[in-house]
Design a protein around this nucleic acid. Structure first.
Lengths: 165, 165
DNA sequence: TTACAATAGTTGTTGTGACAACTATAGCAA
DNA sequence: TTGCTATAGTTGTCACAACAACTATTGTAA
């Protein structure tokens, strides 16, 4: 009897924690999306792609790497690259030694756009995210998320070492 | 000089924590979506709507309440309700005393579908989410997410008291 | 060398969500 | 009552993402 009750309580705690995680993510996503769109006419997804390109500035990424890092489908990545290329923010190049792959690089204009977006995003991040968490909170959060990612075999893709911008 | 460095480190920590949060959310979302779709032919969004209906089983929800709880747009909520109604899982009813609103309720069939989805979801939640977190981790997580939600004025909507399933 | 399999991206199609415009009802003031 | 405003939902349109099918290139084995 009390075992059943304990199980139900356990389940409630789990569901509650997950719902909170999801809601927080949605709320913050919406905030960042709005801010970015309003001030730079760029979507979060596009910003993330440019951001990943800059992270790996030394070795230009190919489509499949981008897709893996962003957890996007290949087709979605193609379409996004289409838009960014049309806007003049990135270039696609297929190297001669392997004509299957496509290497994506930031253009000068793309770097400028990214810099602007970086400013806007970090400001929004500070206000809507970091302002409500202490430094130890941030470390706790990273620890928890790392556990979740590792537990689901998704840690490698999530690795990120933001460059000194 | 070292102040600038400290600021950069701070920003890295913030960005990293956010990226991890987002990635973890995406990975888990994808897992749950797949599991639910495979075993119940229902999307997470649809499950969440039914779930919210059951949470408030005593007083049937109206469209705007559902939209607020799910952080969805009114139009999106209408479309989802269209699908669920067509599938026979919910009913819409406009009460006579206020013919503007639409009250949504689970049908018998909807309750059964929800029960199945509940089983599948909670199993997936246990495996992909809760299995990697201790009870104190879960409480930490709730605490952190609550801070974020409160900080952005979104706590009330996120409130959830899962019923004894 | 030729044939077959594997890899990398792209395109066709479809589903879903958002914003804005619209309809209908309710509240309220003159 | 009449007219104005606010509220509640729905619909038109469009943007974006996913899956599957397709093309092109590379690797490999007979």
């Amino acid at each position: 009897m009390s075992e059943l009750k304990a199980k139900i309580d356990e389940s409630r705690l789990q569901v509650g924690a997950w719902l909170n995680l999801q809601q927080a993510n949605r709320v913050l996503d919406a905030i960042f999306e709005h801010r970015l769109r309003a001030e730079t006419d760029m979507s979060m997804a596009e910003y993330e792609l440019l951001f990943r390109l800059q992270l790996a500035a030394d070795h230009p990424l190919q489509m499949s790497e981008i897709a893996a890092q962003l957890l996007n489908s290949p087709s979605g990545t193609t379409r996004m690259a289409d838009r960014l290329e049309a806007a003049g923010l990135i270039t696609r190049e297929t190297p001669r030694d392997n004509r299957r792959v496509v290497r994506v690089a930031l253009t000068e204009q793309g770097q400028q756009a990214l810099a602007r977006a970086d400013t806007v995003f970090r400001e929004a991040l500070g206000e809507a995210f970091a302002a409500h968490l202490s430094e130890s909170d941030l470390n706790d959060l990273r620890r928890l998320m790392r556990k979740l990612l590792e537990g689901n075999g998704a840690w490698s893709e999530a690795r990120c070492e933001p460059g000194a911008s």
